[in-house]
Amino acid sequence: MSVTEQVGTRLRAPRHQVSRKAIPYWTVRALPGWVVLAGAQIVFAVVPRGPFGAQPSWLWVTLAVTVLLAVAHLLVMPRWRYRVHRWEVTPTAVYTQSGWFDQEWRVAPISRIQTVDTERGPFEQLFGLSRVTVTTASAAGPLHIHGLDEQTARDLVEELAATTQASKGDAT
């Protein structure tokens, strides 16, 4: 049985996109890291005689590079991510697509689902978003759907509850 000779061997994208509010959410979430990195360099560059003596001349170069990278990352990453992140639930499976630079597709059969969690971090609450995590009996197989708006997340959890209740077995 040759695996390669099959037709239709391309994964299509899952049907639903995440909320548009995910773009500002991802931007804001990525911001603190860059602020700390650039901030530390600014402090070093500005403080005339810090605890480490005179500031090296190349500090302005690294600072410029940091700012450039930060702007590029903050502009590109959220939009790219928004185009990639998608999800779908069918009567038999949950299917997600995520990532941006590195991308990943995850599929879990409904019959193997063990728990469905919703989580809302501080930034997510700011934008009215939720993150849904679907776990199976494998420690390596949770499906995460980031950036869902709260109503969609609630509906999704209810839908999963209804479908999983219909299936039997201990899911291992």
Partner: peptide, 24 residues
């Protein structure tokens, strides 16, 4: 009990993918 298909940027350029079978 589930699948992960992973493709990094460089894997996509090379037309490759890593298949991960998850199990309990």
């Amino acid at each position: 009990i589930g699948w992960r298909l992973h493709a990094s940027f460089f894997q996509r350029r090379a037309g490759l993918m890593t298949v991960v079978a998850t199990t309990a």
